[in-house]
Structure formats: structure tokens, C-alpha cells
Amino acid sequence: MKIEIWSDVICPFCYIGKRNFEAALEQFEHKENLEVEWKSFQLDPTISELTAEGYHDYLTKRKNMSQEQVNGMLSNVTEMAKQSGLDYHLDQSVIVNSKKAHQFIQFAKSKNLGDQAEERLFLAFFTEGKNIADTETLVQLGLELGLDEIAVKSIFDDQSFEYEVAQDIQEAQNIGVTGVPFFLFDRKYAVSGAQPAEAFLETLNTSFEQWRKSNPEVVIQVSQGKSCSIEDGCD
């Protein structure tokens, strides 16, 4: 069963949602039957790749929030993250355009490393205060994931990955996604926002039960005779 997750790596609730979803997966007994795909979403594509500002300044200037409102919100989000086992340092986070980061994720997905790339970027942004629009930073993160340095450097000149980002964003608009994180289960059930693990587990069980009805488990009764196998040869 396929689960699609729209996320932006500068969204604090997306990392929390990821961790709560993973906690639900640990309790889900059929996780070997799941396929999870991360999809791109940009909360604010107007942010510059060059002008880096902190979370506090960004929310104060661009979202017209007071300093008291910003301080309270960031404190609440940090505590919420802590409850999910995450260590946020939002005072160090560098607000930049996330397009390059999403291109990086799309490339990693082509190497079956989509989840690992998403996790590494979240950690880089929310805990380590790294600039995720900086090419050299992304190259270093790619090397940590085992990706080829030259290949990573070429990502941002490859229109195919830019196209994949745009397609994910368009698809989100088509199905009515207006905020992230957004978890879509088998294109029938959805969880919006960083909900508790219990909510994810409930949706996992419900959606998988419906999916299993249309995709019954195949059980083959085998009558065994003399045969040859790859590992043991012929007996």
C-alpha cells in the first residue's frame, strides 16, 4: 500500500509529523507491505536563496507577527518537537528558499534514499542551523548519504529534478493540499498536520484493511519434488 507525504523541509511540523508517523509504523504489524514516498511542497517559494534570515525575523517581518507572538510560537514548537524526541534550535535555523533542497530530495529518491535525504535535511535545518540552499552544504549532505559528489553538483542544472518538484506541488494543488505535512494513504484516507502517533496508527489500520480487501495476500500450496535452486544447486 502506498503512502504519499507532502512536506517542506523548513516546516517545523513536518519533522514532528515524520517522527510521529515513524512511531506509528513501529506499532504497525504490516509495515513490510507499505511503500512510502516523500513529495515536495513549498510553503513560501518567494524566499530568496541568497538572503538568509532567522526564523524570528522571518515571522516578524513576513507574517506580521509581534515579537511576543513569535517567541511564544517558537517556544511551543520547540517543546512539541522535544516531546517527539527532536532537538530544535530554531534560533539558529537559516530561512532560505527550499527549492534546491527539494531537488536534492528528488535526486535521492531516484537512488532509493528519499527518506534518508528528508531526515538529513530536517536535522541540518532544525538542529544544526545549516543553510540548505547552499550547494556546497547539500553536496556534503549528499556525501554523508553515500551519493556521488559530481552527481549531486549536477542536480541543480538538471531540469528533470526541477520538473519533479513542480509536479509534486501541482499534484498537491490538484487534490486540495493547502498545508503540510499531509499524509495520503492509498489515495483514500489522509492525515493533515503533525498529529499524534495514535492518529497515524488508526489511519494505517483502517486504510490497510481496505487495501487488503482489494489486494489479498497470495498463499501458494506447494507440492515439493526434486528441484534445482540458485543457492543449493540440484538435489
Score class of each variant (00 low, 15 high):
I5N: 03
W6R: 00
I10S: 05
R19L: 05
R19H: 12
E22W: 01
Q27A: 07
F28K: 08
E29H: 12
H30S: 12
L34N: 02
W38E: 01
S40K: 02
F41G: 01
F41M: 03
L43T: 05
P45Y: 02
S48Q: 05
S48T: 03
A52Q: 12
D57Y: 03
Y58T: 07
K63P: 02
S66D: 09
V70P: 13
V77L: 08
T78R: 05
M80H: 09
Q83K: 14
G85Y: 08
L86Y: 03
L90A: 10
D91R: 07
D91Y: 07
S93Q: 03
V94F: 07
I95F: 12
S98T: 14
K100W: 07
K100R: 13
K100S: 11
A101K: 06
A101E: 09
K111L: 08
K111S: 10
L113N: 13
G114C: 06
E119V: 06
L123C: 14
F125D: 12
F125Q: 10
G129W: 03
K130N: 11
N131G: 04
N131H: 09
N131F: 06
N131E: 04
D134Q: 12
L141I: 10
L141D: 04
G142D: 01
E144L: 13
E144N: 12
L145M: 00
L147P: 00
L147Y: 01
D148L: 04
D148K: 06
D158K: 01
E164L: 14
A166P: 01
I169C: 12
Q173K: 13
N174V: 11
I175E: 05
G176P: 01
G179Y: 02
V180A: 00
D186F: 11
Y189E: 11
Y189T: 08
A190D: 05
E198R: 02
E202S: 09
E202C: 02
F208H: 10
R212D: 13
K213D: 15
N215C: 04
V218H: 13
V219F: 09
V222S: 12
S223Q: 15
G225C: 13
G225R: 13
I230S: 15
E231I: 13
G233S: 07
C234L: 09
D235F: 15
